[in-house]
């Protein structure tokens, strides 16, 4: 398992627990003190990331798509911030 803690400049903390399979997400948990409305969408984001190539643009696209489809709002963090935190975990290997 790879992990990271990314303090968003001037914002919240995003923590990642990442189980990779080759270059893709096998399993992921997104943690932190940000806000997401509705909260349950975090699980949809985590599930949708499974199978995604661990590459910044691909990760941002999956997260952004889920947020749009779910009409969800992230507060204190962005799709890019979560993707960045995932990349930091990935690079720690």
């Amino acid at each position: 398992m790879l992990s990271s803690a990314y303090k968003i400049p001037g914002g919240k903390l995003v923590k990642i627990k990442l189980w990779p399979d080759a270059e893709r997400v096998e399993r992921i948990t997104i943690l932190g003190d940000f806000f997401l409305h509705p909260e349950e969408v975090i699980v949809t984001i985590e599930e949708s990331l499974v199978g995604t190539k661990i590459e910044i643009n691909a990760l941002v696209k999956v997260i952004t798509d889920v947020l749009q489809q779910s009409e969800a709002k992230l507060i204190g963090a962005s799709a890019e911030d979560i993707a960045e935190a995932i990349m930091i975990a990935w690079k720690s290997k």
């Binding site: 948990t29 943690l31 932190g32 003190d33 997401l36 909260e39």
Partner: peptide
């Protein structure tokens, strides 16, 4: 703890 945090962490 916040709803997205890990208790053990």
């Amino acid at each position: 703890i916040g709803t997205f945090q890990s208790m053990l962490d």
